[in-house]
């Protein structure tokens, strides 16, 4: 990777040292770099990476909970509703936090049959418009709508309606807010990287 590549270059993006774990030396994902990095976007991306990395252990925990639940029921004939519900908690938290993680890793599926023939600048424009008119308003609106939703649950001290289920449902519901907050942030980061390429603001670092 060369730090000196001009940001407005129309040539292919510089190859990054694609490590075994798919990360650059700075710890951020080495997507096949369409967009330059910037200081503020790096800051956001580091946060999302940290949260996502930590949250990813939840899948290992989920296995443990499932196996415990099956064992307890089959071997000891016991059923534990809260353990059943804990599976749901882990699964739900995992995927909703993961949504932003997948943005930062650029892993959301794209139908790029046409787009792959376009120039880098054109694609950056598309990314810019998509982020401004689709991703940011959508995630922002959900974020705004989710706050009263969670607050109601909190005020009513909502609990599981299953016998022996988990209390404080608002905790799980609040992950809609956290999750979409992170999605919004991840979107802002991508937006900054688009403007860096197109207008040199903020300053592209490559």
């Amino acid at each position: 990777m060369s730090e000196t590549t001009p940001a407005h270059s129309e040539s292919a993006p510089p190859e990054s040292p694609y490590g075994d774990d798919g990360r650059d030396a700075d710890g951020l994902p080495a997507e096949h770099r369409m967009l330059p990095r910037t200081r503020p976007s790096n800051a956001i991306d580091h946060v999302i990476m940290r949260v996502g990395n930590a949250a990813s252990w939840i899948w290992a925990l989920l296995i443990v909970v499932i196996i415990t639940n099956v064992t307890v029921r089959y071997a000891f004939g016991r059923a534990t509703v809260w353990l059943e519900e804990l599976q749901l908690y882990f699964y739900a938290i995992g995927f909703i936090v993961g949504l932003s993680y997948a943005i930062t890793w650029d892993r959301h599926v794209r139908v790029d049959a046409l787009a792959e023939r376009w120039s880098r600048r054109t694609r950056a424009w598309v990314e810019l418009f998509g982020t401004v008119f689709l991703l940011l308003p959508f995630s922002g609106a959900i974020l705004v709508e989710a706050v009263p939703y969670v607050r109601t649950s909190f005020t009513l001290n909502e609990a599981s309606s299953s016998p022996g289920g988990l209390p404080h449902t608002w905790i799980l519901k609040s992950f809609i807010v956290w999750g979409f907050g992170l999605i919004f942030l991840a979107g802002v980061s991508r937006l900054l990287r688009c403007t860096a390429l197109l207008f040199h603001r903020p300053r592209p670092l490559w």
Binding site: R73, G77, E84, E85, P163, G164
Partner: peptide, 25 residues
């Protein structure tokens, strides 16, 4: 006692008190 039964709601709580293993599959 030990009956593995799916039972939602308050009835489920009653059965739990009687030792049934209530699930909400």
């Amino acid at each position: 006692n030990g009956l593995r039964i799916r039972f939602a709601g308050m009835g489920g709580q009653v059965l739990q008190k009687m030792g049934a293993e209530v699930t909400v599959l």
